[in-house]
């Protein structure tokens, strides 16, 4: 194998590599040029539009940005807490629902039916309505105040579990039946087969759509402001009234984007990697 390192590429290969390098350099240049032209066009369009000075003042005011920061940031921390609790809750609850839907046998009909009815209902119901029903219904039932750190996650878990359960179920069904048969042939029970053989493969298959739901949830935690909680969105609303300026909304928006961005990149990276692996497997 040492011959590989010592081998010098032939003139043909050297020329090919040089050509590819030139091609790459050219594509980079073309890409850079088109990006600059495009960005310049957008910038000119915005900067020379008649209302720009006013828009700049009311949406991008540095003073309002700094002034609104403490309260919006505190609100954002509340969003993060709600998000953290909800993610764990959704993971557990959605897996249970998905599991119930895979049960076979007449005995389990009620469980299957309930799980199916649940996903149908809560995928159809707008999150904001669930928030109102939970936010005002549960305190009404209990006849006492319930902290938003409970109400927010409950509403989010109810809604998102319905979506995520369907994604997980799709993953379970996408695992080839031979895997289940192999598990049962080893003597594993239905539940063990699902837990040790099928689910790990299923989750891998549906990671990109799961991440997508997660990103979507990161933004939807902003809706808990309708419960009266001072989260980032509500804080921005208050600050907007204080400063007579929309910059706090932009600030809150930026915070949500910054939160979502690493997940979005991670999702892209994961999907790309999985695709590469599948292609390697297919060509072998």
């Amino acid at each position: 194998m040492t011959a590989t390192e010592a081998r010098r590429p032939s003139p043909i290969e050297v020329e090919r590599q040089a050509f590819r390098r030139r091609q790459t350099a050219r594509s980079v240049l073309v890409g850079a040029a088109s990006t600059i032209v495009f960005a310049a066009a957008i910038a000119l369009l915005i900067l020379f539009s008649p209302g720009w000075p006013k828009v700049q003042q009311s949406f991008f005011d540095p003073v309002a940005w700094v002034g609104a920061w403490p309260r919006v940031w505190d609100g954002f921390l509340l969003n993060l807490q709600v998000l953290g609790i909800s993610v764990v809750g959704v993971a557990v609850f959605a897996t249970i629902i998905a599991f119930l839907r895979t049960l076979r046998g007449a005995v389990w009909f009620p469980a299957r039916f309930l799980a199916a009815a649940y996903t149908d209902l809560f995928r159809g119901l707008p999150l904001i309505i669930v928030l109102y029903l939970v936010g005002f219904g549960i305190p009404g039932l209990l006849q006492q105040r319930v902290p938003v750190l409970v109400l927010g996650p409950v509403a989010l878990i109810i809604t998102y579990s319905a979506y995520v359960a369907e994604v997980i179920r799709a993953g379970i069904e996408a695992v080839h039946p031979s895997q289940r048969i192999a598990g049962r042939a080893l003597g594993l029970t239905h539940g063990q087969t699902l837990r040790m053989v099928v689910l790990p493969q299923a989750i891998r298959k549906v990671t990109p759509p799961l991440m997508n739901d997660f990103i979507s949830m990161q933004k939807d935690v902003g809706l808990i402001s309708v419960l009266g909680a001072v989260d980032a969105v509500r804080a921005a609303q208050i600050e907007t009234a204080t400063w007579g300026n929309f910059t706090p909304y932009v600030l809150a928006g930026v915070l949500f984007v910054v939160l979502a961005w690493p997940m979005i990149r991670l999702t892209d990276w994961l999907s790309a990697r999985m695709q590469r692996r599948e292609q390697v497997g297919g060509a072998a």
Partner: peptide, 9 residues
């Protein structure tokens, strides 16, 4: 051409 050669033609 499903794989690119490292050298040769």
């Amino acid at each position: 051409l499903l794989e690119r050669v490292d050298d040769g033609r």
